[in-house]
């Protein structure tokens, strides 16, 4: 299995309540809250697609879309 490569941060702004858990716990500091207190990926290039934000998000608002690397 190749390592998953980030394709997209899909963030559901209607569901995000801006708690900041994803921002705080992202090991690469990819996410921030914007002016509307919604999570946004401000440094997607740093994302290692660990999906910790997705699985911890209490609002089910984050989805990390990946594409597998070449084997």
């Amino acid at each position: 299995m190749g390592k998953a490569k980030l394709k997209e941060h899909r963030i559901n702004r209607d569901w995000c309540k801006g708690c900041g858990i994803c921002v705080e716990l992202c090991p690469k500091k990819v996410l921030e809250l914007d002016a509307e207190e919604k999570a946004v990926a401000v440094r997607p290039e740093d994302c290692i697609a660990c999906k910790l934000c997705e699985i911890r998000c209490p609002d089910l608002a984050i989805e990390i879309i990946t594409e597998p690397d070449e084997k």
């Binding site: 911890r56 998000c57 209490p58 089910l60």
Partner: peptide, 24 residues
């Protein structure tokens, strides 16, 4: 999930949402 009821009623940052996430 029953998407029509989202966003859910829990407060911002409530750990129960994470449990729902894990359960699913």
């Amino acid at each position: 999930i029953r998407e029509r009821f989202f966003p859910h009623m829990w407060c911002p940052g409530c750990g129960h949402g994470t449990v729902l996430n894990s359960l699913l």
